[in-house]
């Protein structure tokens, strides 16, 4: 952040609005490259079903074939092409991650901001609510949710809509369950930031000038919170994706033959034994997951620095 502008210039930067943010972001080469690569990857994942050389569920004779000419990523226990399964897994993981991030962004930020800013009784009440939800161990909550509601919802869906729709019950529950546990931390973090911000002099100055609470929240407090929010979002995506892989490990997540990156890693881990390790089954999905997350975090960094042109305080 060595290139942070002085306050006056920062104000000018803010007036140019989103296009200014975009320009500053584009000028950060690493962040812009990562964003480009990420976008490219997302398109590749979306288009993959039309260009894939192997069907993701097609069984083959070549069990555990190491990476080579025919199967670039090798094959798994059923002789399925790993690369194809990884691309399908990536699309599933990205969807799960996006759902979790969206919920934690919308609910978490507004909840935390309102609680922290209001203070007093409202804050106490709202944060006690978060405490109650927080104090249910999320694993118990999600496991109970998925195991109990699945059969009931499935029946209801197949009656009310169609059997095809009922097949996606697991996804809906997964999105819902992961979303409902992912916003709590965000709310706490945003509240902590707001608490520390609202006693600063610029907030008091704005209030003396007669600004409304909504104005202060939107123009003085939230802009200073976006940095940590964006960064936390880039942390929420991995944690949601990992949570899904843990559920897959328990047999409650994505159901085979469908795959997520996490369930592929779990499959690879189950093949670890003292005789030999099929390294590609672990290394490739893990590397893909790690690269996605690293790109996300570099993008998050770039975004934060482009948004946050003014000095704090």
């Amino acid at each position: 952040m060595s290139e942070t502008q002085p306050a006056s210039e920062g104000m000018a930067g803010r007036e140019t609005g989103m296009s200014g943010v975009f320009k500053r972001f584009a000028s950060r080469r690493l962040a812009a490259t990562s964003a480009g690569l990420l976008a490219l990857f997302v398109w590749l994942v979306i288009l993959w079903p039309w260009i894939e050389p192997h069907h993701p569920y097609a069984l083959g004779d070549a069990q555990f074939a190491p990476p080579g000419g025919r199967h670039w990523g090798g094959t798994d226990v059923h002789g399925r092409d790993l690369l194809t399964r990884m691309m399908h897994g990536a699309s599933m993981s990205l969807m799960v991650g996006a759902a979790g991030a969206l919920v934690s962004l919308v609910i978490g930020v507004s909840w935390g901001a309102v609680a922290g800013y209001s203070g007093g009784r409202v804050d106490a009440l709202m944060m006690r609510g978060v405490d109650v939800l927080y104090s249910l161990p999320s694993i118990i909550f999600v496991v109970v949710l998925i195991t109990t509601l699945e059969s009931a919802l499935k029946q209801w869906f197949s009656k009310a809509f169609s059997t095809e729709f009922a097949a996606s019950t697991r996804f809906l529950l997964l999105f819902f369950g992961l979303g409902s546990v992912s916003w709590l931390t965000m709310a706490r973090i945003v509240r902590g930031q707001v608490l520390s911000l609202k006693n600063r002099s610029f907030v008091a100055a704005s209030r003396v000038l007669g600004a409304s609470h909504l104005h202060i929240l939107r123009h003085h407090i939230l802009p200073n919170v976006w940095g940590i929010v964006i960064v936390y979002l880039t942390l929420t995506v991995p944690s949601v994706v990992l949570y899904e892989s843990f559920l897959s490990f328990l047999g409650l997540g994505v159901q085979p033959p469908q795959a997520s990156l996490g369930s592929l890693i779990a499959e690879g881990a189950s093949q670890i034994n003292s005789v030999r390790i099929y390294w590609w089954l672990i290394a490739f999905p893990s590397a893909m997951l790690a690269s996605i997350l690293l790109a996300l975090s570099v993008v998050g960094d770039g975004l934060r620095e482009s948004l946050e042109v003014r000095n704090r305080e």
Partner: peptide, 13 residues
């Protein structure tokens, strides 16, 4: 990169 790898390789691996 190391920190993120630590974050995204699950315990069961």
């Amino acid at each position: 990169l190391i920190a993120l790898s630590g974050v995204c390789v699950p315990a069961f691996v």
